[in-house]
Amino acid sequence: MKSSKSDGGLKYILLAISLATPGYVNSGHGFFNSFEGVPWLPEPGLMPDQFVYFIDEAIEKFQTSSYVDSLVIKKKYLTFAEEKLAEGVALLKDSNTNHHVRIENSYAHYLTILSQSFSENQSTDETNYQQYCADRLLQHMYILSIEVIDSDRSAVNHFLTLNEIASENYRKLIKHLSRDFIDSHFFKKEEVKWSWEIALESD
């Protein structure tokens, strides 16, 4: 997972907070609670190792080409990205890394066209949805940091790849959002970093 130079100290602080006082060896407790109760990933449905998976892909392609409404299409992109992520997590937790490239490419594909679909001259509804997508991608990263704990060592790098895809598209999404919104994500981003730190420490 990429981290900028300025993140190093913050990581230390947050680890310190989490590991210091008895009663503060944990997430939550007023500092880390941004992801309590967030919707988890959907059930994976058809999987890449199933013969008829190509039908699933064809249906997705048809659905994303048949809607005209801009906001509806964006919602489809996020829905399909989440499905790909759910499929990837299910396979990785089963130590099945055979289809990781296909999953990563699909996940990246939907998130890329999603992040590119927003523009500066868009409606308020679309800007609201852009913020929601940014929130949701942070949640993806958090969920991955939890799901990786149960996985085999051989799958960890693939979890990190999925996390990086989410992170890269998160950065694209927030690029044109307001300073207020970006600032409101500071502690959420730090919680994601902390969650990954703890997850990889326990590896």
Partner: peptide, 24 residues
């Protein structure tokens, strides 16, 4: 939704949050 659980904000925690704000 959005359950959270916290406790009294002690001086030690305040000092650490001050450090975090400074880092930011």
């Amino acid at each position: 939704k959005y359950f959270g659980h916290t406790h009294a904000y002690t001086p030690a925690m305040r000092q650490m949050m001050g450090g975090l704000a400074h880092q930011k």
